[in-house]
């Protein structure tokens, strides 16, 4: 299957650099606005939960982070596959630029979950299915990053990472369901999640605002990381020298 010419045109390093430079503000500013709005409505306007009191408010960070942790892995794997199949350099760069951001979101989801768990469950860590899956996801990210870091040639590093990310994608559902199955068998009624009523609109709105803000943050930061990686890899190309000469 051949990709349309426009894809190649957009994904040529130089065009990507110029286009992404124009796009970043369009992601970054809305991100900031939504972040402030989401935090305001989430932390100040939304009412306290009738069961969990104030501490439920961490979900406005925790849940969007957990969503991002999974979405970014998918983006990473898809970008890796595109790089592997059509040999598009920008896809490789996007995949490797995504990994640290995804790992950071996964870590954030784990830490906020743990902070929430202490007052709610009385323990920093519980071997709950979701927590465990998220921890495994963090290790999948770390494996990807470590593999790419240890291969010197960027082209080979990208391809090896793509293979690993794809293997991970096949495995994630298997891991997820096996962990879920494991925890239902291992965990009795000692700790069960509080049966939450479906979320109220005053809590849903800030949650969605934060989710969109996090996605925009990812878009902006992945482009920034990709741009700097691009400059590094193409440092001997003429267009890079022109840009550097113009900016300095």
């Amino acid at each position: 299957m051949k990709l349309p010419a426009i894809v190649h045109k957009f994904s040529s390093p130089r065009n990507f650099y110029v286009m992404s430079g124009k796009l970043i503000p369009w992601f970054a500013w809305p991100c900031l606005i939504l972040l402030v709005a989401g935090l305001y409505y989430g932390l100040i306007e939304a009412p306290a939960d009738y069961q969990q009191g104030e501490s439920y408010r961490i979900i406005f960070i925790h849940v969007p982070s957990a969503w991002m942790s999974m979405m970014i892995y998918m983006v990473m794997a898809i970008a890796g596959a595109i790089g592997l199949i059509w040999r598009i350099k920008m896809a490789d760069i996007v995949a490797s630029a995504s990994a640290p951001i995804g790992a950071a979101f996964t870590f954030l989801a784990l830490v906020t979950g743990s902070l929430w768990g202490k007052p709610m469950w009385g323990a920093w860590w519980v071997w709950d299915a979701r927590l465990t899956s998220e921890l495994i996801l963090l290790f999948l990210y770390l494996g990807f990053i470590a593999l790419q870091a240890s291969i010197e040639d960027p082209r080979n590093a990208a391809r090896a990472g793509a293979v690993l990310a794809l293997v991970g994608v096949v495995n994630i559902p298997i891991i997820h369901y096996s962990v879920e199955w494991w925890s239902t068998l291992h965990q009795g009624a000692t700790i069960t999640k509080l049966d939450k009523p479906s979320i109220h609109i005053s809590m849903l709105i800030p949650l969605l605002l934060m989710a969109v803000a996090f996605k925009l943050y990812y878009a902006a930061s992945v482009l920034m990381r990709a741009r700097s990686e691009l400059l590094k890899r193409e440092q001997n190309a003429r267009w890079v020298r022109e840009i550097v000469a113009n900016e300095s």
Partner: peptide
Amino acid sequence: LTVGLRRGGMLLSLIVLPLYIPVLI
């Protein structure tokens, strides 16, 4: 993935062990 690397041993465990989890469970 790691055979070409000089010190692939530790890396191998980082890559492979998470994928082994379902079998263990």
